[in-house]
């Protein structure tokens, strides 16, 4: 299978690889996918005020899955939390020219963003109650 140049670039030079402190109050963590399906993405955001100031990812999956999550971190960094929620998988598909068999990678990346934000929101509302 031939990969698009952008997928190859993200695969060779993934942006924002790593982990943030998942116990920190400002950090939201999303882990989506399952090993037996061949893809697991972990995406983390660090929020100050209502802005995502940092994002990190780690992905177990094919090149397109790695590229989708790498791109997702790049896109959400610097965005407001609510803006990040608007990113859709079709934008990822277009940017990376993913073929139909790889669309699930983009869906997973969108899910990872939403899941990380949900985790952050959960944490901050728990914090408010305390």
């Amino acid at each position: 299978m031939a990969y698009s140049d952008k997928v190859v670039d993200h695969y060779n030079n993934p942006r924002n690889v790593g982990s943030l402190d998942k116990d920190s109050e400002n950090v939201g963590t999303g882990v989506v996918g399952a090993p037996e399906c061949g893809d697991v993405m972990k995406l983390q955001i660090e929020v100050e005020g209502d802005t995502i100031v940092d994002a990190k990812f780690k992905t177990f999956g094919c090149g397109s899955a790695i590229a989708s999550s790498s791109l997702a971190t790049e896109w959400i960094k610097g965005k407001k939390v609510d803006e990040a929620l608007e990113i859709t998988n079709t934008e990822i598909v277009e940017e990376l020219s993913l073929p139909p068999v790889k669309i699930h990678c983009s869906v997973l990346a969108e899910d990872a963003i939403k899941s990380a934000i949900a985790d952050y929101k959960q944490k901050s509302s728990d914090g408010d109650e305390a």
């Binding site: 690889v17 982990s19 090993p35 697991v40 993405m41 972990k42 992905t59 177990f60």
Partner: peptide
Amino acid sequence: ELSPLYEMVLEGVDL
């Protein structure tokens, strides 16, 4: 280095 699974295993998580 990129694998969340490897990281979890090194942290002692039973997958």
